[in-house]
């Protein structure tokens, strides 16, 4: 890994220089304490200490919430032309960077999703370190630190940021802006070590995932699923904000009498229609089925990438019924242990 240091006084300058590689998008604030990624025109508006966005940046810039796929005129069809701009996502958290690897696995495996692929190729990712809040459980999922999947990663120092260079693109950027960068000092390394130690000891939520997939599978008939699914509203908020949930629905919209557009839009496995097949059979007819399905999909252990959940805490923060993902898991796990 190649390391550099960005002095704090050059942060805004750094952001402005990034525009050379694309339109800079960064975390910004709306309302009381809601964060979202959006185009950053004024670098002073960046919310560098944000907790988490509503929709993860690593999801919404590659898999658009609503995307036109094709146009029809009568029975003539043409693909929607995708016009992409190069984007620099500044301030992405480690959990989201790790989640993008899971999305990549799905959308870039053959046959590749062309919309995703084009957008993905045009994104530069600048990560930033963070301190866990009450919802974070990324440490339990092993996704609290990004070792790859970024171009640059910034770690907070007392008087600046330690930059990790994670890709040729990252090298290109640091090479070109070397006039505002410094070498990393012994003092900086000490600070980084201290910061990491503090970060790792700040997590308030834990779950032991070593045998979790099996334990959950064995607990298929656990009453815990039932109890929580009675509280669950089935609104799908948890899936919409999830950085690894990627289900979409497609539908046709009339633009005029004879022209229409095929669109895809985020979908959620909490919708009753999600498990329905033609003829009316529903593979997940009850809320319990749907509730459990989400936990199983999130806790699925992929032989290559591990668990499908990165512990970002969004599902908990945005659940109107106050259901806590990790509490449910721990209860199910606890139950099977007979605790």
């Amino acid at each position: 890994m190649h390391y550099k240091k960005l002095p704090k006084e050059f942060l805004e300058e750094f952001i402005n220089r990034l525009r050379k590689w694309g339109e800079v998008h960064a975390p910004q604030k709306k309302g009381k304490n809601t964060y979202f990624f959006s185009r950053l025109d004024d670098p002073s508006k960046v919310q560098i200490d944000y907790t988490r966005t509503v929709i993860p940046p690593t999801k919404k810039y590659v898999l658009r919430p609503v995307e036109p796929l094709m146009l029809f005129h009568g029975d003539r069809a043409e693909e929607h032309t995708l016009r992409t701009t190069k984007l620099v996502l500044f301030g992405v958290h480690a959990c989201d960077i790790n989640a993008l690897k899971i999305l990549d696995r799905v959308y870039l495996s053959e046959p590749r999703d062309p919309y995703y692929e084009i957008r993905r190729k045009n994104i530069v990712i600048i990560g930033i370190s963070c301190m866990p809040d009450d919802y974070c459980f990324c440490k339990s999922m092993g996704t609290d630190y990004a070792m790859s999947g970024f171009d640059l990663f910034l770690h907070e120092l007392r008087d600046g940021y330690l930059i990790r260079v994670g890709s040729p693109m990252g090298h290109e950027i640091t090479w070109n802006i070397s006039d505002i960068l410094e070498e990393v000092s012994e003092e900086d390394i000490e600070y980084l070590k201290k910061f990491e130690k503090q970060r790792l000891s700040s997590f308030k939520r834990h779950v032991d995932i070593s045998a979790m997939p099996d334990i959950l599978d064995l607990a298929y008939n656990s009453r815990v699923w039932e109890r929580y699914s009675e509280r669950c509203l089935g609104c799908g908020n948890c899936t919409l904000v999830c950085p690894t949930c990627r289900c979409f629905e497609t539908y046709d919209v009339w633009l005029s009498v004879n022209t229409s557009m095929r669109v895809r839009r985020y979908d959620s496995c909490f919708m009753v229609s999600h498990g329905l097949v033609a003829g009316g059979h529903n593979f997940r007819p009850t809320r319990l089925d749907r509730f459990r399905h989400r936990y199983y999909c999130k806790s699925y252990f992929d032989p290559i990438h591990g668990i499908n959940c990165v512990g970002c805490g969004r599902c908990d923060e945005f659940c109107p019924a106050g259901i806590k993902h990790i509490e449910v898991l721990n209860e199910v796990i606890g139950e099977i242990y007979g605790r």
Partner: peptide, 14 residues
């Protein structure tokens, strides 16, 4: 789908 779906897509403050 409920109102929440579009609300989340808009990233409106809940």
């Amino acid at each position: 789908y409920p109102v929440c779906l579009e609300c989340k897509i808009n990233e409106t403050e809940c």
